[in-house]
Nucleic acid binder design. Structure first.
Lengths: 218, 218, 218, 218
DNA sequence: TATGAATGAGGCTTCATTCAT
DNA sequence: GATGAATGAAGCCTCATTCAT
C-alpha cells in the first residue's frame, strides 16, 4: 500500500513522484483532521499526526513549514467542502425555505465530517489565521445570499450591516445547536425535528416577509 | 504584605489561618481567570498561574488536587457572576424588551470580564465538566424565563423542546456576535447599534407576539 | 552523597536549601567545563552536561535560563581563575623576567585546567558574549602591566595603541604554542625549554630595553 | 543554464560529463566556504550547503562520502591559496622587511577571503584532519624561510626547534590580531598602522639582526 | 501551609543520510 | 549523475507533579 493506491477505476496504480508527494501530504491532512477533531488542536502533536498518517515525524517537515502551517490550513479547507456540500443541497424554493434547507444541510454535513465542529470551534484560538479566513468566506457568501433575497423582496427592513450581524447569529446558533443536539453518546445524530421547527419559526417570522404565494410557515 | 490585606475599611488586617487559606485560593482563581482569558487553557500552565498569583508552584497543590480541578471550576464560577450581572440589568418592561436588555447586558458583562469569552469557548474541550455545568445553569434559567413569557401570552406557538433549541440559538448568537464585534484591536468595545437592532428585529418578530399595548418594534 | 557534601574540615554536612541549590549549580558548571573542554561547545548538549552532573535534564533549567546562558558564563569564570593563577606565580624581578614568568605560568595553568584552551578557542563563535568579556578582561590587565613597565623605563618607543596590538600578539602566541606543545597523546605536558627560550629571546629583545643591572638575555 | 557555463572566451560551452561533474563539486566547495565562513562548521548543514550551491541534497553524496569529508578538505584548499597569495606579495628586500610584507599580506588575504579566519579557527575542532594538514604546510614553509634567513646571516642565535616555536607564535599573533582588528561592524578592514608598526618593532628587534646595509627599523 | 528544586516525559524541530525514480 | 522525499535519532525546552525543608 505504501507504493500504490486504488485509482477511481479500482486498479492499483504505481504513483509517480509528484503523485506520491501529494498523496503523503493528503495523508497528513486527513490524519490531522481526524486527530484535531478527536483531541483538539492542543493535543494534536506532530507525533500523533504522523503516527496516524503512518509516516515518520521528519516527513511532516517535508510538507509543511511547521506544525502551525498545517493547522492553519485545516479549517479553510474543510470549510470549502462545507460550502459545496450545503450548496448542493439547497433547492430553488422561496428564500425562507432555502434558509431552512441550508440549516438542515449544515447538520447533515456535521454527520459527514464529525470533526468539523471541534476544528471550527477551537480554531479561533489555535489557528487564528485559518479561522479568520474561514469566517470571512462564510460571512461574505451568506450576506450575498441575504442581499439577493432582499432584492427579490423576500426580506425587507434590514440594512447591509444588520445582515452581517444576522449572519453571525445564524452561524453561532448552528454551532451551539449542533454541539447540543448532534452528539448522543459518541455517535453523531441528525438534528431533531423540534430544532428544525424552532429555527424555521424564528427565522421565517423574524427575517423573511410573509409570502402568500409560497405560503409562510403559519 | 504577604501576611495581610487591606480591608474595605482601609485598615491592614492580620488574617487568621482560615482566612489566609481562602485568600490564597482566591488569588489562584483570579490568576487563572486572567491567564486562561489571555492565553487559553492549553497555555495556562501551573507555573504561569502561580507566578501571576505570586505564590510558589508547590502551593498550588495545597489548594487543588491537580491543574484540571481548578480549570473545571473556572467557568461555572464566572458564569454565576454573569447571571447575576444580567439579572440586575433586566427591567420590568414587556418580555420582548427584557430579552433585548438581556442581550445588551451580555455585551456589557463581556466588557467587565473580557476573559469570559475565551474561557467559555474553550471550556467545552478543556474543562468539559465545568462546561456542561455552566450550560445547564444557563439553559435552565433561560428556558424558565421563556416559559413565563409564554404563560403571560408574550409567546405563543412554541413548545418546551423548541424553547430549549431557541435558547441554544440565542447563546450561540451571543457568542459569535461578541467575538466578532466586541474586540477592536486589543480593546473590548460596546456592541454596535446595528447589532442590537438586528437582534431586536429578529427576536421580537420571530419569537414574541405583537403586543399592541407596548407596541412591537415597528 | 546526594544529600551531603564533604566540607573542608572533612566532615559530612547536611546542606540547607540555599547551599544545596548552589551546589547543584556548581555541579552543572563543572560538568559543562569538562564536557566543553572535551567535546567542544557544539557537542555540549544539555543532555550530556546534566548526565555528567548527575541531575535530570529539567533541572538544568532551574539554574539557567537556557543552554547559552551557561555557555556564556563559562569562559569569563575560568578566565578569572587564570588571572589569579598567573598573578600568584609572578615574582618581583625585572619586567622582562616577569613577562617570562607569566608566559610559563600560562602553560602551568593549562596543565591545571586542560579544558581551558578549547573553551577559549571556540568561545569566539559559540559564546561570543563571554568571549568578548574575557578578552577585554585580559587585554586591559595586560596593557596596564606594559604601561607600568614603560613608566619604569623597561620599555621605550611603544605607544598605547601598539601595546594593545602587542598584547593580542602575546595572547595569540600563547594559544598556538600551547595547542602545539601542550598536548602529547591525550596527556597535557609542560612547555618544552626551547619554547620558553624562543619566547624569551623574541620578547626581551623585541619589547624590553637592555638592562645592564639585571643583565639582558644574552 | 544548468548545463553550461561561460568560458573565459565568453562563449557558452556545453560541458561534457567530466567537466560537469567537476563543476558541481566546485560549486559545493564554494558554497561550503561561504556557509562555514558565515555560520561556522556546526551550522554548516548539508541542507544549507546544497541550497547555497543550488543542487539537491542527494547530489552532495555523489561527490563526497559524507559531510565530514568535505569539511576536512576546506581549510587545506584555502590554505594553499593563502600561501600563493602571500608569496606573490613578498618582494626581494632584506629578510626583516620580507617578514613584514608577509604579515601585511596575511591581512590582505583576509580581506580577499573573509571566510578564512573562521574556517581556520574552528577547523582545529571540527575538521582536525584538515587542520593538522594545514598547520604542517604552513609551519614547514615558514621554518624553511627562517632557516634561509639564518644562513644569510639575518638571524643568529636561534635553533631549528626555536624556529618552530617562533613560527607558531607568529601564526597565533596573526590570528588574534586579525580577529581583533580586521572586523569593524560587518565589514573587513585593513590592519591599522599601529598594528603593523608594533609587529615590525617586535620582530625586527626580537628576531633579526641589525643590518646596517638595509637599515634596521631604528 | 508555603516553598521551590528536582524529575522525566513529551513537544517541536533539525539533521545526516538513504534510496527509488 | 541528479533529485528530493523519507527516515528516525537527537537537540532544546516546557510542563505537571512530587517532596524535603
Amino acid at each position: 500500500m505504501t507504493q500504490s493506491s486504488h485509482a477511481a477505476s479500482g486498479k492499483v496504480t504505481k504513483l509517480n513522484r509528484v503523485e506520491r508527494n501529494a498523496w503523503t501530504k493528503r495523508r497528513l491532512f486527513d490524519a490531522a483532521t481526524k486527530i484535531v477533531g478527536k483531541y483538539g488542536y492542543a493535543e494534536a502533536s506532530v507525533a500523533r499526526i504522523t503516527e496516524e498518517a503512518g509516516v515518520a515525524q521528519g516527513t511532516f517537515y517535508n510538507h509543511f513549514e511547521n506544525r502551525q502551517e498545517l493547522l492553519d490550513q485545516l479549517l479553510p479547507k474543510i470549510g470549502i467542502d462545507m460550502v459545496h456540500f450545503i450548496r448542493e443541497r439547497t433547492g430553488t424554493a422561496d428564500a425562507a425555505r432555502q434558509e431552512i434547507e441550508r440549516f438542515s444541510a449544515f447538520f447533515d454535513f456535521i454527520r459527514e465530517v464529525p470533526e468539523f465542529l471541534r476544528i471550527l470551534n477551537e480554531a479561533e484560538y489555535f489557528a487564528p489565521v485559518g479561522y479568520q479566513k474561514h469566517l470571512d468566506n462564510i460571512a461574505t457568501a451568506y450576506v450575498r445570499i441575504l442581499k439577493r433575497a432582499r432584492t427579490a423582496g423576500a426580506i425587507v427592513d434590514f440594512s447591509d450591516e444588520e445582515f452581517e450581524a444576522i449572519v453571525h447569529m445564524f452561524m453561532g446558533a448552528r454551532g451551539y445547536l449542533s454541539r447540543r443536539y448532534s452528539y448522543t453518546g459518541g455517535a453523531v445524530t441528525a438534528a431533531p425535528d423540534h430544532v428544525i421547527s424552532a429555527y424555521r419559526k424564528l427565522v421565517t417570522r423574524g427575517l423573511f416577509t410573509p409570502d402568500k404565494g409560497n405560503g409562510n410557515d403559519r
